[in-house]
Design a binder for these strands. Structure first.
Length: 465
RNA sequence: GCCGACAUAGCUUAGUUGGUGGAGCGGUGGACUGUUAAUCCACAGGUCGCAGGUUCGAGUCCUGCUGUCGGCGCCA
């Protein structure tokens, strides 16, 4: 059974009182299910997952904590009348402390608790029973009904969502460890910004003491400012896009893992993009194989994401490939999702698309010195129809070139003066990428919708709960 | 911004050519007692999203509104 962070027995890592901290909880259901407590007296603290029986002599309570569920057997002649009635009256999601002996059995869970005493800590009022019922879960079948979205704060406790949140934690941890193990400095950019970063129409405007400010769309421009100071830097932070997107890949608030690296080529940035995604897949297998299986994920497929090299394809090759499949596309057009999807059908692992036409990409992408019709950029497309998970490339880094690119786009220079300044004082080649963390979680979990992979999804129609 | 669906009990839903809205889960009461989505019996729970219209009669047909969902564009 999965422990909270997938590293083995929970109790081994929580030495009681070793740091002078009173331990709130000593025993974990995940450990009980692993068998380490067989024959021992334990005290379990958790929530009622389900009750069965509830008669005159014996009843069964399936107790849940963050590490799993276990059946507790409550017999009237053992616990006494009053305790037996308290347990019988405890509805689903009541919190409870039970004490008793762990017994190995050949029944369903393999281990169960013979309860000697029990107390309800936080009861549930029968006038307002826990609203997430079996039918709500079964019918939704992992999907996201309006009801479950409205009750997201309660849906979080269900096994599917708990599993998702654990996978998500592993993805976040893997991204940090990838960059930190390679001497990247974690660096924070502001979330309130004054000007547009890209495509001003997708900015969220917020009142700011009589002025207008915006929520950041990306860490990138501020990362470039720190690039001459730190040389190798990364972040994981929310980004905000006011897009009325109604797709299974978009949120208005999403977690953005971004990196920037000095003296680097598009090629080197791509190596890190591939590296971090493979590292995430590897960590998922190491720490969360059980959770992946619970969600129906084939571990062999995930192993492919961790071990196989990611192919690269130039934009021109992609256009040829699409045209040979009879897709209508003209050179210079950006590749939208429907076309990406057709391309990803040919691959079993993520693959890169590089060298887009400069007219299809914003000014900060550096034109290819070998053929300035193209820019040195890359997108990483996840297979299985999950689409783009990374966008990055080399930055326009000389003052002349950045001014030329800004002017040809018709973008005003004024808001970008600080950005141009970076080029005026010792500009160097550099690059970076942004990775959609929630998209990676969605893809690796095999979820149908990005909303399933984040605790409180935000889109154009929902900011609650 | 564009296109397309849907809205019935706390939840998931059935509801025929328009004729007094049913079920499963959850809740309550009872039976049963080593149950595994426990089972069995009974009870409670509905302004059929809102507002108009057609009709003798509307959950059902029409119009508008609101909300939600799905897809496209945009992107991570």
């Amino acid at each position: 059974m999965g422990s909270p962070n997938g590293l083995g027995f929970i109790t081994d890592r929580l030495p009681s009182g070793s740091r002078g901290i009173a331990m709130a909880k000593q025993y974990w259901i995940g450990d009980v299910r692993s068998g380490v407590h067989d024959g021992e007296e334990v005290e379990l603290k958790g929530w009622v997952h389900r009750t069965r029986g509830g008669g005159k002599k014996i009843q069964f309570v399936v107790l849940r904590d963050s590490t799993g569920i276990v059946q507790c057997v409550v017999k009237k002649d053992v616990v006494g009348d009053s305790c037996f009635d308290d347990v019988a009256n405890a509805l689903i999601e009541s919190s409870m402390i039970v004490r008793g002996r762990v017994e190995s059995t050949d029944r369903e869970h393999g281990h169960e608790l013979q309860v000697e005493s029990a107390e309800v800590v936080g009861p549930v009022n029968p006038d307002r029973p826990f609203p997430i019922t079996e039918s709500a879960m079964t019918e939704a079948d992992g999907g996201e009904t309006e009801f479950l979205l409205d009750n997201r704060h309660l849906y979080l406790r269900t096994s599917r969502m708990t599993t998702m949140l654990k996978l998500r934690s592993t993805v976040f941890g893997a991204i940090h460890s990838y960059f930190r193990d390679r001497d990247f400095i974690e660096y924070q950019a502001p979330n309130f910004v004054a000007g547009a970063v890209e495509g001003g129409s997708t900015l969220f405007e917020v009142p700011y003491f009589g002025r207008k400010a915006y929520l950041t769309q990306s860490w990138q421009l501020y990362a470039e400012a720190a690039m001459p100071a730190l040389e190798r830097l990364y972040t994981m932070a929310p980004s905000f896009r006011a897009e009325k997107s109604r797709t299974r890949r978009h949120l208005t608030e999403f977690w953005h893992a971004e990196m920037e690296i000095a003296w680097a080529s598009n090629e080197e940035v791509m190596e890190h993009g591939e590296g971090v995604v493979r590292h995430i897949a590897r960590k998922m297998l190491d720490e969360r194989s059980e959770e992946l299986s619970e969600l129906g994920r084939d571990l062999e497929v995930i192993a492919g994401f961790a071990d196989s090299p990611y192919p690269r394809m130039r934009y021109d090759e992609a256009v040829d490939a699409l045209q040979s499949k009879g897709v209508e596309i003209e050179w210079g057009q950006d590749l939208d999702y429907s076309k990406e999807k057709i391309l990803t059908d040919d691959f079993e692992v993520p693959h890169f698309l590089t060298h887009y036409p400069r007219i299809a990409k914003p000014f900060y992408h550096r034109p290819d010195p070998e053929d300035p019709k193209y820019v040195l950029c890359h997108d990483l497309l996840a297979p299985e129809g999950y689409g783009e998970i990374i966008g990055g490339g080399e930055r326009t880094w000389s003052e002349d070139e950045i001014l030329e690119r800004i002017d040809e786009e018709g973008t005003p220079r004024e808001p970008y003066e600080f950005y141009i300044d970076i080029r005026r004082y010792g500009g160097v080649p550099h690059g970076g990428f942004g990775l959609g963390v929630d998209r990676v979680c969605t893809w690796l979990a095999g979820a149908d919708h990005i909303r399933e992979a984040i605790p409180f999804p935000r889109d154009s129609r929902r900011v609650t709960p």
